[in-house]
Design a protein around this nucleic acid. Structure first.
Length: 273
DNA sequence: ACCCAGGAGCTGC
DNA sequence: GCAGCTCATGGG
């Protein structure tokens, strides 16, 4: 079905933003997006129009929410004063089109445990290998097979050898610990959507292999706590270089997470490695 | 052969 | 409490 999206929406920028690991650009200019057990192809048509290859019910129930289409990112960007914060203004101006996706919390927990001390292509590879190894096979709208993201039960039942085959390295223990913790119910990810930030951090960091940074990523991308501000190596560098007196978190509450994404993408693009 | 990556746990002080 | 070390492995 064809949808018009008047607000910021750039599939290429979202795909490279480092918040999702199962976007794939197709030869025909469309994107295949897999999230949880769902898959959709999206083709930009120009003039803010997009073809979502699914019916209206699936768009309404899954993808509208996933892309956070009720939020105005243009409105959020307008909170930046170019005179007061020229660096953030430039970052947002160049990276506009990024949105904070409403992704599955369990998938984010595993994806960001896998992310530690690795670059984005390597993370994408491991997430795909894990899905191929333990996800349920399904068929997409184009008749192609894909794998949904594996459930906590499926991951918990994987052995060391199977997990290592997904190129998780030493993180394989962390991934299994997370699966066990969620399966036992010691941490209720759904309940955390309504929890405060302190309680969310306390519970997430209680999982073996989850520190402050990964917990913030789960909070931002999996629980849609959009004030969460993950500090990885790139954000650390950007803040040290551009905000010697500290980033003005109070000024940007409750949208710090959105601005973090602009900074991350902008700084990484400006300092390629 | 390097050096780095959307880090975290462990150890020793 | 905090600096320093270690952990696997792909990408550049």
């Amino acid at each position: 079905m064809v949808i018009e999206i008047a607000d910021d929406f750039d599939l290429g920028r979202i795909a490279q933003s480092g918040q999702c690991f199962r976007f794939r650009g197709m030869n025909d200019g469309s994107y295949r997006v897999i999230q949880g057990q769902s898959c959709v192809y999206i083709a930009p048509l120009g003039n803010n129009r997009y073809c979502f290859e699914c019916d209206e019910a699936e768009f309404r129930e899954t993808w509208h929410d996933y892309f956070d289409l009720d939020e105005s990112y243009e409105g959020i960007r307008s909170r930046i004063d170019p005179a007061e914060d020229p660096f953030l203004w430039e970052a947002a101006e160049q990276q506009k089109g990024i949105r904070i996706l409403r992704q599955d919390a369990w998938e984010m927990l595993v994806s960001f445990i896998i992310s530690q001390n690795r670059n984005i292509p390597a993370i994408q590879n491991s997430v795909e290998l894990l899905s191929q190894a333990a996800g349920v096979q399904r068929v997409d709208a184009r008749g192609c097979a894909y794998r949904g993201f594996p459930t906590p039960g499926a991951v918990a039942s994987m052995g060391e050898r199977e997990l290592m085959a997904c190129k998780l390295g030493y993180r394989w223990k962390y991934v299994r610990a997370a699966a066990t913790t969620v399966l036992e119910g010691s941490v209720d990810l759904l309940a955390l959507r309504e929890a405060g930030e302190a309680e969310t951090m306390r519970q997430l960091t209680s999982i073996h292999g989850v520190g402050v940074k990964v917990a913030n990523c789960v909070s931002l991308f999996g629980l849609h706590h959009i004030d969460a501000f993950p500090v990885d190596i790139w954000i650390k560098r950007a803040l040290e270089a551009e905000y010697p007196d500290g980033f003005p978190f109070d000024r940007y509450r409750p949208y710090n997470g959105v601005f973090q994404q602009y900074l991350f993408a902008y700084y990484r693009e400006a300092h390629p490695r």
